[in-house]
Computed example of a mutant assay.
Amino acid sequence: MNFQTTIPLKPQSNNQIDYNSKVVLLGSCFSENIGEKFQYFKFQSLQNPYGILFQPLAIQKLIFNAINEKIYSEEDVFFYNEQWHCFDAHSRLSNPSKETLLQLLNKNLFQTKNCLIDATHIIITLGTSWVYKHLDTEQYVANCHKVPQQNFTKKLLSIKEILVSLNSLVDLVKTINPTVNFIFTVSPVRHIKDGFVENTLSKSHLISSIHQLLSSQFESESLSYFPAYEIIMDELRDYRFYNQDMLHPNQLAIEYVWQKFVSVWISDNSEAIMTEVDAIQKGLAHRPFNSNSDAHKKFIKQIEIKASKLQEALPFLKF
């Protein structure tokens, strides 16, 4: 007897990710979860340089500004609740110093362009179709930074609007990196503040627009969809796979989806390296009863030898 439905998956036949790949992850907090896995296993990756971006227009704007080398200035930031913020970035970039925020915005934007140029894979996770337009600037914002809601108008992006945005960001990146591979996903995190029905409608717009994009470029092998949303909703349809808020997948669910992603997108020859990296990471995280004991010193020496051998083959690895 089988008590679980399973999303059919098959390994990607071309363009899999290995330790020579360079991965850029942009989007909703689910991209953070997968991005942390890439960082843990020491893949070459850049994760959300402007913080979590929930909706497609924000991701498109980041890519547009990076490619066009925008320079952020005082006009692009504002002071609120004792911090300086930018409507294009998540609040984790906010800072009590205006100069520090501007330096961070411009540094991360420069880094983003360089990584987009070199990227072999770009993973984009969309979280919501709901967007907020700031009334004074008439710009859609990536984050409201707890500015009172009367300063914004709220809108549900249509499937057509999302499709136009996705087409635009793909075309933008391909002007500087024509061979890059895009992997689209939809975040399984539910935005209940929008309402239960409204969240379902929002997710459906995202899923429909991504698949319309794939259908319009059906001859291209550089655009793919990974069903993270469906795996959580259909395979792990139980609240034991969620955090206490009952909205965000817990570590067990994240690990499950990561293993599914590995089975599709990570090359077989990289899995042995991942096993070695995992052993080193666990060794480095080990907390001994006596750090001055001979046994512990010998253990640390063995870990250092393993790390050194791996770094000889892959010099970019940093432990």
Rank of each mutant, 00 (worst) to 15 (best):
Q4V: 10
T6F: 11
N14P: 07
N20A: 14
V24G: 01
C29L: 04
S31L: 00
E32S: 12
E32V: 04
G35P: 02
K42Q: 13
F43H: 03
S45R: 06
L46P: 04
N48W: 00
I52W: 02
F54H: 04
P56Y: 00
A58I: 01
I59T: 02
I59S: 00
F64D: 08
I67D: 04
Y72T: 04
E75W: 12
V77A: 07
E82C: 11
W84C: 09
S94C: 04
P96R: 08
N108A: 06
L109V: 12
F110K: 15
Q111T: 11
T112R: 03
T112G: 09
C115I: 13
L116F: 04
D118M: 13
S129M: 08
D136H: 13
Q139F: 13
A142V: 09
A142N: 07
N143I: 09
K146V: 07
K146C: 06
P148M: 04
Q150G: 09
F152H: 14
T153E: 15
K154Y: 06
E161G: 01
V164C: 08
L169I: 05
L169H: 13
N177P: 10
T179W: 07
V189H: 06
K193Y: 02
G195Q: 01
E198N: 11
N199P: 02
T200V: 14
H205A: 13
I207L: 15
S209V: 00
S209N: 08
S209K: 06
I210T: 05
Q212L: 12
S215M: 07
S215C: 09
Q217C: 11
E219K: 15
E221G: 12
E221R: 05
S224T: 06
Y225I: 00
F226R: 15
E235I: 00
D238G: 07
R240N: 00
D245A: 05
M246D: 08
H248G: 03
I254Q: 13
V257M: 04
Q259A: 12
E271C: 14
A272Y: 10
I273E: 02
E276V: 09
A279R: 13
N290M: 02
D294P: 11
K297I: 03
K298Q: 12
F299P: 03
I300R: 11
A307K: 15
S308K: 15
P315R: 13
P315I: 04
F316M: 08
F316W: 01
K318A: 12
K318G: 03
F319M: 05
